[in-house]
């Protein structure tokens, strides 16, 4: 850990990325206390433009609800969906990719044909089917996203493993007699996480938006609970005369993704001891 505090790790990327992410996460976590009356409908203050009234700094929506309050509170659902679905997909996908790529043979065929079938199914069709069976809820939305996305990680990891497993340091470990599990954990995994981290940061944003599509179709969480994707979809009809209703949730997604991307890049560079990817 001492190495952590050496100057090379304190890059601009880290400061910006960590700053943005921390701000958003803390804001979202504290939102219940910061904005206790988030759902309050005030029809007298419909569609107030931003920066006009101090109590509605980012304006209000068509029902007079404060946009800023809804952004912070709605972040809870969005971040939960974004993070948990990506974490779940990574765990399943990386494991499957490692098994398929390292053991090849039957395992490879089983995992990869399963993945092909998965990729051939349209997402919405899958969503309708699963939600129709298990019903719509936050947990089910996350499971649905994991089911549809682990394939991406599995394919990425498998390709990396195929390239890595014939590298001489893996061969050398095999020659020493290192167990397969240890080869995977200490030789393959650290060398293939770079692209996985990048894909993760991209998918967090993607999944926040997917959650809104599902909610929009009535397949996701309860539409009365605010979420960024849901607000984006709601504000769509007012875009001509009340841009702030959908633009500010969009900005929230943008900043989250930006923060995570910066952190992801920083993480990738820091984990690579050769420093090759550093500028």
């Amino acid at each position: 850990m001492t190495a952590f505090f050496q100057s090379r790790y304190w890059s601009l990327e880290f400061i910006l990325g960590a700053g943005l992410t921390t701000f958003i996460v803390i804001g979202v976590l504290l939102s219940r206390w910061l904005f206790p009356d988030v759902g309050a409908i005030d029809l007298m203050a419909r569609l107030v433009p931003p920066f006009e009234r101090p109590d509605h700094l980012l304006g209000t929506d068509p029902l007079g609800r404060d946009v800023m309050a809804r952004i912070f509170v709605g972040g809870w659902i969005s971040l939960k969906v974004g993070f948990l679905s990506v974490l779940g997909s990574v765990v399943v996908g990386v494991l499957m990719g490692l098994i398929a790529g390292y053991y090849r043979g039957v395992w490879d065929i089983i995992v990869m044909r399963f993945a092909d079938v998965q990729l051939a199914l349209p997402f919405i069709l899958l969503a309708i089917t699963i939600i129709a069976i298990v019903g719509g809820s936050l947990t089910n939305t996350i499971i649905l996203l994991i089911v549809s996305q682990w394939v991406q990680y599995a394919r990425l990891v498998r390709a990396q493993v195929l390239a890595l497993r014939d590298r001489e340091f893996v061969l050398a470990a095999r020659a020493i007699g290192v167990k397969n599990r240890n080869i995977i954990m200490s030789h393959l995994l650290p060398n293939l996480m770079g692209p996985v981290v990048v894909l993760m940061t991209l998918n967090v944003a993607n999944n926040i938006l997917l959650e809104s599509s599902l909610t929009f179709l009535g397949l996701g969480v309860d539409p009365t609970i605010p979420s960024w994707g849901g607000m984006l979809a709601d504000g769509r009809t007012y875009l001509q005369n009340a841009w702030w209703v959908s633009v500010f949730p969009g900005v929230a997604i943008l900043l989250t993704v930006l923060g995570l991307n910066l952190l992801g890049d920083w993480l990738r560079d820091t984990l690579d001891p050769t420093g090759r990817t550093q500028k």
């Binding site: 050398a172 020659a175 167990k179």
Partner: peptide, 26 residues
């Protein structure tokens, strides 16, 4: 076994000490 390419036969993500100790641990 010692391999031809000393650039490829050590895991770039692990310290030299870790690599030398690998047979001992294994």
């Amino acid at each position: 076994y010692i391999f031809q390419d000393p650039f490829a036969s050590l895991n770039p993500r692990q310290t030299v000490g870790w690599s030398v100790a690998e047979p001992i641990r294994t």
